[in-house]
């Protein structure tokens, strides 16, 4: 008796699962659930750098996909609604820029200095280290734009002859590394100016770094947004030149 009821429950569950797994609702909801859990954990950990909400949510969802044998394509059917908001969020970065306008005007020269130095160091040091370690030219082309926001990096990598998928993966890893290292690093260097901290983070670690900066301080977030936007333009101009010097 009990076994049969159990079997039926399993069969019902499998049926409900296969119904839900076909539509976007399940994976959209699970994306939000994973983020809410990750954000709560991050808050509980006092926003410790390693308890990065993106990283935790990605691990939770990665395990769920693996455990249920779900492909990324099926997952993305649901998650695309969240992914789509990256565009409007980029436009919305105008809001902190507008609110911090007066402070930004007073800091034009420091912003440009931080932008140029951060951007050049990001591209040159990555290519120099990777080449010294024996990484091939095609991979270098995908690595060059790693500090810039994903759509720009994909475009740059393609025009340089690198793989767009690999470029996107390297961009996301860079963002997570940046979001994790920035706080201990700049504390150790005794940089206390929120503007400097934010700008450098946005230049080196694009949107994921900017998200981290907003978590910490609104002024850091605003300057990170500026750094990300300006570096998108600068890297597009700079990366081809630097890469040519390394090939």
């Amino acid at each position: 008796m009990g076994d049969r009821a159990g079997d039926r429950a399993v069969a019902d569950f499998a049926e409900i699962w296969s119904y839900l797994a076909r539509g976007p609702l399940l994976w959209l909801t699970l994306t939000l659930v994973a983020y809410v859990v990750a954000d709560a954990l991050s808050q509980w950990a006092g926003r410790a750098p390693l308890a990065n909400p993106v990283l935790i949510a990605v691990i939770l969802l990665g395990l769920t996909l693996w455990g249920t044998g779900t492909s990324y394509a099926v997952y993305f059917e649901g998650a695309q609604f969240v992914h789509f908001l990256l565009g409007p969020a980029t436009v919305a970065l105008a809001v902190p820029l507008y609110l911090e306008g007066a402070r930004l005007k007073r800091a034009v020269l420091p912003v440009l200095a931080g932008l140029v130095v951060g951007s050049v160091v990001a591209v040159v040091s990555a290519l120099w280290i990777a080449r010294a370690l024996g990484v091939g030219p095609e991979t270098l082309a995908a690595l060059a734009p790693k500090s810039t926001t994903a759509p720009v990096a994909i475009g740059i990598a393609q025009s340089l002859g690198g793989s767009p998928t690999l470029a996107a993966v390297l961009v996301l890893i860079t963002g997570m590394v940046g979001a994790i290292v920035v706080t201990p690093l700049l504390n150790a260097l005794r940089v206390r100016d929120w503007r400097a901290r934010g700008l450098a983070t946005g230049v080196a670690a694009h949107g994921i770094g900017t998200a981290r900066a907003f978590q910490v301080h609104p002024q850091a977030g605003a300057f990170a947004g500026i750094g990300m936007g300006l570096n998108a333009i600068l890297t597009a101009l700079l990366a081809p030149w630097v890469l040519r010097a390394f090939l």
């Binding site: 931080g114 160091v121 990001a122 590394v177 100016d193 230049v203």
Partner: peptide, 23 residues
């Protein structure tokens, strides 16, 4: 991974210090 970690650390440090110096 080595290239990404080292270059991200260098870029954040250099960018923040350049900002601070010019400010």
């Amino acid at each position: 991974m080595v290239a990404i970690v080292v270059s991200t650390v260098l870029a954040i440090a250099a960018g923040a210090l350049a900002f601070k110096l010019v400010a």
